[in-house]
Write a protein that binds this DNA or RNA. Structure first.
Lengths: 198, 198
DNA sequence: CATTTTACAAACCGATTGGTTTATATTTGT
DNA sequence: ACAAATATAAACCAATCGGTTTGTAAAATG
């Protein structure tokens, strides 16, 4: 069963996650979280020891949602190519229609944490490892099943695909133009069709 | 001639630029700037009306340095291919050896400003336009001079190259591994050699 | 060399920061 | 239904936030 505190904790995480993802860690104040949850400080600090801890769990919540949604789409496909295409379609229009308000939590947290927030950086590092690893796994399986060319370097290709998605996301969001990212995703589809398939 | 205030202004910009680029706008406090410049509040607010204004000019300073360094490297080369290679070599090891402490000011500012800091976002948008435009210009010239294939889409290729660089930068910095970015830059060289040249 | 302008240090401001304490409800297990 | 444990509201805290004011020292100008 869920205790009352379990429910309150979860509500705090779910309400604060989009705030952290939109405003960033530094610009998000405890008052923002109080307003969003309708709680007072006692209610929040009774369930979390610090703002840092809320930020950590909010990030893990946002990344967890993203990974779950990706896995759901991937699982429905059977070929390596279709799985990759499912990932690309997941990111279509992501700059204007992200899973969590504020854009990609990995990108946002990576940039904000890399020099100053080690407790968040290690969480973002783990998320990057999982995403790149998952991508490389699909490509490797495609190679092993003879669907993809044998001379492909799965890890290199995973890194390339993900850099294009993340760089494209940044540019589309900055320029307020989803076509930048969408165009890159179309490029990637073409590349997979022409360079990955045997 | 430079008045004393010109010199003080410039010193404030140059000392605060790496702080903003490392900690971000929100996490950088006026006290950080006072410590870095050795001034007191009177000295800073006598030359700038607000923290926002310092942040704007610090960003423009960092981006200006980046654009100038890029143009210097590009100008020395004669062919479109060599100019592109010069850009790629500029970014080699950028994750551990950036021009301004804290990494790429465009990437950092884009991510922090896109949802909340419109006065910085418009500056970052302009910087992105200039960088993408410069890249597309080189490619277009390469097409017109018959150095590059006629069916290349200069703007699309510029977007692709820049997304890989920026996405790679984010990943290299996050993973504390310059090889991620450097490997992507090598990929790009190969792609240019095999797919751009006639 | 005197005067006007510029530059900056120091003290100060109200508001807000993340976090604590206390006291009272509300659940929970018996 | 009662006692123990849990949960949260409200008041409070020192420290820090960005920004202002005031007074004086240093430059620039005649």
């Amino acid at each position: 069963m869920f205790t009352k505190s379990d429910i309150t904790r979860q509500a705090i995480i779910e309400k604060s996650a989009p705030i952290f993802n939109t405003k960033g860690y530094s610009a998000t104040t405890m008052n923002d979280i109080l307003l969003a949850t309708g709680l007072t400080k006692g209610g929040v600090y009774g369930n979390f020891e610090s703002k840092d801890q809320i930020a950590i769990e909010a990030f893990e919540h946002s990344i967890g949602k993203l990974l779950e949604a990706l896995r759901f789409k991937i699982k429905k496909e059977n070929t390596a190519k279709d799985k990759l295409f499912a990932i690309l379609s997941f990111y279509k229009n992501y700059s204007i229609n992200p899973l969590t308000e504020g854009g990609c939590p990995l990108l946002n947290t990576a940039i904000e944490s890399d020099d100053n927030l080690p407790f968040l950086k290690i969480k973002a590092q783990k998320a990057l490892d999982e995403l790149l690893g998952g991508l490389a796994f699909i490509i490797q399986k495609g190679i092993e099943s003879k669907e993809f060319r044998a001379d492909l370097d799965a890890e290199k290709e995973a890194t390339l695909i993900f850099s294009i998605i993340q760089g494209g996301l940044m540019m589309s969001k900055l320029a307020d133009n989803p076509k930048i990212l969408n165009g890159l995703l179309e490029n990637l589809k073409t590349s997979i069709n022409t360079q990955y398939l045997v």
